[in-house]
């Protein structure tokens, strides 16, 4: 099966010379359709950088990012933008929403940017907002919504355009534990019930525990990986095998 996302020897260096920061050092990662992957690691280990490169928000120093078989690094800005619009949904920690647009308009934004007819875009946005439990908040501006509600709008927005993958960078970083839990559960639901592929960056183990697979990042490298037993048998045995390898 072709992975939704795969990276090959992905590296990213910020700055140069003495002040160069090696944010990523050769990342090889593949995400299968329907998988819910969490990336964990201490702050500054390169989690966000990885997400940005996969999302085509930044360009790698070397290595490749393949989205459904298409090499992102070979596309120009407009092509990457169009790809982002159609194949990716983003949820960030802060500044997720455009402050002057209401929830419905925010959720419909990527589709409108993609040239969909506004009526259809709003219809789809409304459906998704209702599914994430924001039916009664459609016309509220972001400033009138709680942090958790804002993230829900962002999630609805990410879902509405039916992207291939949802990229979330610390979506709960700004929320209290109860709201965090709810968002994490929502993501879990999106994965299990609606079959979406999710790449979630977090440093909160409680949130990461909802994922099917956890990738541990340290100093720009993948140091460990855990596949949850509930996912399926072969993968569990695969991970056991892997653990053995690490041990040897």
């Amino acid at each position: 099966m072709q992975p939704i996302v795969s990276t090959q020897d992905l590296t990213k260096v910020y700055g140069h010379g003495a002040t160069a920061v090696h944010a990523l050092r050769g990342i090889n990662l593949a995400i299968q359709p329907g998988e819910f992957v969490a990336v964990m690691g201490p702050s500054g280990c390169g989690k966000s950088t990885l997400l940005h490169l996969i999302g085509g928000l930044d360009r790698p120093t070397s290595g490749k990012v393949m989205i459904e078989g298409e090499d992102l690094t070979r596309l120009n800005d407009d092509q990457v933008t169009a790809l982002r619009r159609r194949k990716m949904g983003f949820v960030f920690q802060f500044f997720n929403l455009i402050p002057v647009l209401n929830a419905l308009e925010n959720a419909a934004l990527p589709m409108i940017l993609d040239g969909m007819r506004p009526n259809e875009a709003y219809q789809r946005a409304r459906e998704w907002l209702e599914r994430v439990g924001l039916g009664p908040r459609l016309t509220h501006r972001p400033s009138e919504l709680s942090g958790g509600e804002q993230q829900r709008v962002a999630i609805a927005r990410a879902l509405a355009s039916e992207p291939s993958i949802i990229l979330a960078d610390e979506p709960t970083g700004n929320l209290d534990s109860r709201a965090s839990e709810e968002i994490a559960m929502l993501l879990r639901q999106i994965s299990s019930e609606w079959g979406r592929t999710i790449l979630l960056v977090t440093h909160d183990p409680r949130i990461a525990a909802y994922a099917d697979r956890i990738v541990f990042l340290k100093d720009g490298q993948i140091v460990d990986e855990t596949i949850m037993e509930s996912r399926n048998g072969d993968e569990v045995s695969a991970v056991v095998g892997k653990m053995k390898e690490i041990g040897d």
């Binding site: 928000l57 982002r84 960030f92 455009i98 934004l109 993609d114």
Partner: peptide
């Protein structure tokens, strides 16, 4: 800048 960056992330191209 942030709003604009967000729009860009969501798929608005430079012309937009």
């Amino acid at each position: 800048r942030r709003d604009i960056g967000m729009l860009r992330a969501l798929g608005a191209n430079r012309a937009t």
